[in-house]
Design a protein around this nucleic acid. Structure first.
Length: 565
RNA sequence: CGGGCUGUGGCGCAGCUUGGCAGCGCGCCUGCUUUGGGAGCAGGAGGUCGUCGGUUCGAAUCCGACCAGCCCGACCA
């Protein structure tokens, strides 16, 4: 394509509202434009990159037996009511009516539709199947941010595996694991697989594919020794032993005027160190007022709780706490309460601990966890901290990283097929619900992740695999006949050789062209100007700085062909 | 959803405190000169000042409501 005829609205200055590097550079480089919060148009360059990403995904999906189709983005509410998600995902689902008053929704994802399609299968002999599409999703996120990293409308590749049994699911799950590894590697991303929460998708195993970046919103724990990797929503660490001092007799109240925090209590003395305190949090789990007890220096990882209990989880308000316990937050404890208590297992066996007395300005010491707290359920629900020992290998320590989630694979099981009647007859002639898996890759988010990990002060540095063009020909004096003719000939020959090329034929000064080429991030730049044309040479430079050489014009095509392949 | 901030030409911003002709830089158009790292000179086009209402002789400016966007947090199939 010719730059002069292509819509590439680059900006000299950074857009005011962009913070993340990918957001800033994709807007400034003329790849995307915002329409409203969390929704972007892909301009020609952005579309070319998205097409490259989609192409890699299709390639690898087809390689594991995927069949591409396309399911609608507007669904009847009925479908979502049948699986229960009409109510479960209240809030981020856009609902509306058609002219007859029928309830419709915009698809957040497509488990329902694919399960519905799968109900046409009749026999185990037709399985396994692997279906996928690249389709728009709309999620009315409360807070879209960071350009393409967190949007409301986006294109996702989602695939759905259909099997007779769990063994088949395992095979397809592992096939996806490999395909995803290859997809991200081909895009130039170093992806890491981490154990993840399945959220309200339902199902058992789930693995996230993440890329390290400070622009990311998820946090993961990584072991420096054995390779253990997990999202903080699920991560576990080895517990450090805390020796308790002996204590005889029942818990003893003591005055703590004005103390409202764990840290505030520690000044009372060694016996009240944070590790010797019991942190008591008041939550509603479903309709039940519930106390959560953790070690004083630990934090609640709420997703672990959400994953382990039924119903909605929310913190109790101060008013509810005072009504139920008779004290305000800061003096709460679970000793002798009649409410349900969930305890973090690190507290098991601990004694002579300090906790609130459910009376303002009073705490208890000498608390023996298993003797004094009516813990009805032990549940790991604490958040892993930087530097804690790995629970898997016991020799490494965990570090925490911020990451961008670019892919997620789930073993769904039979939830959707049962709800929607997607059954086949098994070998013995009995109907059995199809076992499903679902697997997603965000196209735009992957693009943004590439930019996050591959840019410099001048702009984006695309890998050839997803670059909008492999080469840009920068004509320094397009009006100079020798330069113009040489440029046109190279442009034609590169196109004929199947190398994607952008010809910068604009009547701009050299500085503008160089700066734009670097901003847009095309991997190779071929510079043709009056200086080199006399000796029939062009300059070839790579955007990443690894190459800068002079090439005779008649060698250019061959040289680029070997670079780009 | 809670807290903070911002809406003025395509982009970045000033003007608002103290009401009185709507400005600056970049970009854009025309001409001349220039041309290997974001050119110079001259001329020019382009704005319901987010929306609605109020106060006032007069509102970008003061008051109110609403809308939109950004940031922090909560949330995130």
């Amino acid at each position: 394509m010719r730059w002069s005829r292509t819509f590439i609205p680059t900006l000299r200055e950074d857009p005011a509202d962009a913070v993340a590097a990918s957001h800033r550079l994709l807007v400034r480089g003329g790849f995307i434009r915002q329409l409203m919060a969390g929704s972007y148009s892909l301009l020609p360059l952005g579309m070319r990159v998205a097409t490259k990403v989609s192409g890699i995904i299709r390639d690898e999906m087809n390689a594991i037996g995927g069949q591409e189709l396309l399911a609608p983005v507007v669904h009847p509410a009925e479908l979502w009511k049948r699986t229960g998600r009409w109510d479960d995902v209240e809030g981020i689902m856009v609902k509306f009516e058609d002219r007859r008053g029928a309830d419709l929704v915009l698809a957040l994802t497509h488990e329902e539709v694919f399960a519905q399609l799968a109900s046409e299968l009749n026999s185990y002999r037709e399985l396994p199947q692997l279906w996928y599409h690249l389709q728009t999703k709309f999620r009315d996120e409360a807070r879209p941010k960071s350009g393409l990293l967190r949007v409301r409308e986006f294109i996702m590749k989602d695939s759905y595996s259909l099997d007779v049994g769990l063994d088949g699911l395992d095979v397809q799950f592992e096939a996806h694991r490999g395909a995803y590894d290859r997809v991200f590697a081909r895009m130039g991303l170093e992806s890491i697989q981490v154990e993840a929460s399945s959220g309200n998708m339902g199902g058992s195993d789930s693995v996230e594919f993440v890329v390290r970046s400070d622009a990311g919103e998820d946090r993961v724990a990584l072991c420096d020794s054995c390779g253990y990797a997990a999202n903080l929503e699920r991560a576990v660490s080895a517990t450090d032993e805390v020796p308790d001092d002996p204590w005889e007799g029942p818990p003893q109240p003591f005055p703590t005027p004005g103390v409202r925090t764990i840290a505030g209590l520690t000044v009372m003395g060694r016996f009240a160190a944070a590790r010797r305190q019991i942190k008591t949090l008041a939550y509603y789990v479903g309709d039940e007022f519930t106390l959560l007890v953790l070690r004083g220096d630990h934090d609640l990882e709420i997703q672990k709780l959400v994953d382990a209990v039924a119903g909605v989880v929310r913190p109790a308000t101060e008013g509810e706490i005072v009504e139920k316990l008779g004290a305000r937050p800061g003096s709460l404890g679970a000793v002798g309460v009649e409410h349900p208590v969930i305890g973090d297992p690190v507290l098991r066996g601990r004694f002579n601990m300090v906790t609130g007395a459910n009376e303002d300005d009073v705490h208890l010491r000498g608390v023996d966890v298993e003797r004094d707290l009516p813990v009805g359920r032990w549940l790991d629900m604490r958040s892993v901290r930087e530097g804690e020992d790995c629970n898997t290998c016991r020799s490494g320590s965990l570090s925490l990283s911020k990451v961008i989630e670019v892919g997620h694979i789930f073993k769904l099981g039979r939830k959707y097929s049962e709800a929607l009647g997607a059954t086949v007859l098994d070998e013995s002639g009995r109907p059995t619900p199809i076992v499903m898996g679902s697997y997603g890759i965000g196209v735009g988010r992957s693009m943004a992740a590439v930019v996050e990990v591959s840019h410099d002060g001048k702009g984006i540095i695309w890998p050839v695999s997803v670059a909008p063009f492999a080469v840009v020909i920068t004509l320094l004096r397009p009006d100079n006949p020798a330069v113009g003719q040489a440029g046109e000939r190279l442009y034609r020959d590169l196109n004929n050789a199947g190398i994607e090329v952008l010809l910068d034929d604009r009547k701009e000064r050299p500085g503008v062209k160089f700066a734009d080429a670097e901003l847009v991030g095309i991997p190779y730049r071929l510079t043709i100007g009056p200086r080199g044309i006399e000796s029939r040479e062009a300059e070839l430079a790579s955007r990443d700085g690894s190459l800068a050489e002079t090439v005779p014009l008649d060698r250019v095509i061959a040289r680029l062909a070997e670079m780009v392949s």
